[in-house]
Design a protein around this nucleic acid. Structure first.
Lengths: 205, 205
DNA sequence: CTTGTAGTTTACTAAATAGTAAACAATTAT
DNA sequence: ATAATTGTTTACTATTTAGTAAACTACAAG
C-alpha cells in the first residue's frame, strides 16, 4: 500500500539522457531532477547519490532496451556473418537518428561514462565492465558460429571479438569527438574484412 | 623585462596529469593550482579558464613530448611494418609504466578528454580533433609505404589508418575501463594481421 | 473512516567552487 | 636609483551544489 510513483523511472531516464548527451561529471543532481520533473527530496528518497543513480540507469537501460536489441540482432536464426553486419548497420542507423535528434553524435553512453569515471568511481566502473563484457560475448558467439560453418577462417574467437568490439567503441568515440558519423558508416564491411569474410554471403549485392 | 616565472609550465603539467588520471570534469581549478604549487591569482593571470588551460596543456604535451615520440616511431628509416608494430609495442610499454606509477590504467588523455567534453566544449573538441588527426596521418603514411614495398596488400590507406586508430583508441578505452592491459598486449600482432601482413618481416622470431 | 505506509515538498545548511581586485614583489632598462 | 613591467599573493564575493529534516499528501487495507 501507500502512495505510488513513477519518479524513479523518470529519474533513471533523465539521468541517462543527460549523461549521454553531456557527460557524467558535468551533470548535476539538480539538473537531473529538473529534467525529470522531480524534486530533490524525492531523488534522495530513491537514490543515495549520483553515482548510484548512474549505475541504476545503465543497468535499467540494458534491461529495458539493450538486451532485447542485442538478442534480436544476434539471434541464432540469422546467419552469423549477417548478425555482425546487421549489428554495425543498426548501430550506424541508431547514431544517425540520435544525431538528428540531438544535433550531435553521442556515441556509446556506457563506454563514455566508463572511460570518464573508471579511475574515480569503482561501482560505476564495475557496472560498465559488466555490461561491456556481456556485449563482447554476442560477438564472440557469432564469430564462433561463423567459424563453425566455415564462413570465416578459424582462430581465437574471444580475441577476435575483443578486437571487433574495440574497433566499434573506438569508432564511436572518434565519431563523437569529430561529430561525424563517417567512421561508422563503413564498419559493417570493415568488420567483416577483419574477420576474413571473402564472399559477401547474403543481403548485400 | 619584469619578473620571470615557470608557473605557466607548472600549471600545464599539473593539469594534464590530473585530467589524465581523473577526468576533465572532476578536476577543479583549485586542485590544479594546489598540485602545481601555484596560487589561483596566478592561474588567472595565465589562463582565462579551465577549458583554455586544457587546450593549452594538450597542445603543449604534443609539442614537447608527443611529436618527437611519433616522429621517432614512424621514422622513414624504419621498415613501415615495423613502425606500426613498434608503435603498438611502445604504447603498451608506456601504459605498463603508467600503471605501475599510478596504480591504474590511464589510457589516452586526448581521447578521454575529447570524448568527455566534445558535446560541451567546442574549443577542446577542436584541439583534440586536430591532435588525433595528426596521429592518424602517421598510420596512413606507414600503411602507404608498406603497400608500396609490397609488404601488405593494396587498398584505401586512409580508411585502414582510421580503422587501426579506432582499434587503438578503443583498446585503450577498454583497458582503462577494465583496468587491465591485456587488451593492448596483443595489438602489435593484431594490427598487422588486420593489415594483412603474412610474413613477420623483422624483429619478431 | 482511520491508520499505516509510500512518496512528495519545502526550506534550509554547509561546503565547494569560480572568479576578481588590489596590494605586493621581483626584475631589468634607462 | 627609479620607473616600467611582469608576475604573485591575499582576501574577498557570489554562486552553485550536495545533502538533510520535517512537515505534508495520497493511497489502500482493515
Amino acid at each position: 500500500m501507500g502512495r505510488t510513483s513513477n519518479a524513479k523511472e523518470l529519474l533513471l531516464d533523465a539521468a541517462l539522457d543527460l549523461i549521454w548527451e553531456r557527460s557524467y561529471g558535468v551533470v548535476t543532481i539538480d539538473a537531473i531532477c529538473e529534467k525529470a520533473g522531480v524534486k530533490k527530496g524525492s531523488f534522495y528518497y530513491f537514490f543515495e547519490s549520483k553515482s548510484a543513480l548512474a549505475v541504476a540507469a545503465l543497468e535499467a537501460d540494458w534491461d529495458q532496451c539493450g538486451k532485447q536489441k542485442w538478442d534480436g540482432l544476434f539471434s541464432a536464426s540469422i546467419p552469423p556473418v549477417d548478425r555482425i553486419r546487421n549489428f554495425f548497420q543498426f548501430a550506424y542507423d541508431g547514431q544517425v537518428a540520435l544525431k538528428k535528434e540531438h544535433g550531435q553524435v553521442l556515441g556509446c553512453p556506457c563506454f563514455s561514462v566508463g572511460s570518464e569515471t573508471s579511475t574515480q568511481d569503482e561501482t560505476i566502473r564495475l557496472k560498465v565492465q559488466e555490461i561491456l563484457q556481456r556485449q563482447v560475448r554476442y560477438f564472440e558467439s557469432a564469430i564462433r558460429d561463423a567459424q563453425a560453418e566455415g564462413s570465416i577462417p578459424p582462430g581465437d574467437a574471444a580475441a577476435k571479438a575483443k578486437c571487433l568490439f574495440a574497433l566499434f567503441e573506438g569508432s564511436l568515440g572518434q565519431a563523437r569527438i569529430q561529430n561525424d558519423l563517417e567512421f561508422l558508416r563503413v564498419l559493417p564491411e570493415t568488420s567483416l574484412g577483419i574477420l576474413g569474410v571473402t564472399r559477401t554471403s547474403s543481403s548485400a549485392a
